[in-house]
Amino acid sequence: MRALAGIGAVTLGLLAAIGRVAMFFGATVTHLVRPPFYLREFALALLNIGWLSLPVVGLTAIFTGGALALQIYAGGARFNAEAVVPQIVAIGMVRELGPVLVGLMIAARVTSSIAAEIATMKVTEQIDALVTLSTHPMKYLAVPRVLAATLAVPLLVGVGDVIGIFGGYAVATGTLGFNAAAYIQNTVDFLELRDVVSSLVKGAVFGCLAALMGCYFGMNSGRGAQGVGRATKGSVEAAAVLILAANFVLTGVFFSI
């Protein structure tokens, strides 16, 4: 009986948390479509989330693409299928590894930064100060970041996909003996529009989730340094889990039929 009560309490707690996040998302969306709009904050968020994430995204993608080519070549060699390296690298990067790895890198880099920044603002009464200065914290802090991440992360995913495929190409042509022109031709021929669209849609959803979790945990942080630490940790955990869960759902939506 006690165990059942425990399961019930956990379930209720989880449902309540989902409800709070959904309401937070709803509030963000309603503020998104109502003025005032803080373009400077949006531009800064775009720069921070998009442009400044390029190095880490590029490095992650190139190493992943290279490693993927080596793995596929080694695995394919077991049944004389080494030639599928270009196709599998392309499909693996564009459909799965590109969006998921970029999403997780954004969760690590951006979600943590947003949560820590907003939580610190809360602890030091900067959010209260915003309110007293007639500025809604959701409009000023959450909307620019969530919108910027939703727009910037698909672009990062696109760049990551290209760099990842290039990583595979470099390894395949440099060390595995593939013909460069044939590799590119096989990659282009094999990819479908649906692959690219799914990759970009995943990027938009993952970006939105990553920024949303940073803002939500930041604005609901506890007091003191411990509160900021917990908010930051919680935001990254939640963003990573939600990104992986959303990836599963979106993969089902795009490719189950």
Binding site: A129, L133, S134, T135
Partner: peptide, 28 residues
């Protein structure tokens, strides 16, 4: 209203003058 907070609550990311003029740069 104007309010002076206990720890000043200045916005870290903005230079001093933009902190002071915050209300004068947005809203009514």
């Amino acid at each position: 209203f104007g309010m002076l907070f206990q720890a000043a609550a200045l916005f870290d990311s903005l230079p001093v003058w933009q902190n002071v003029a915050f209300r004068l740069m947005r809203g009514s």
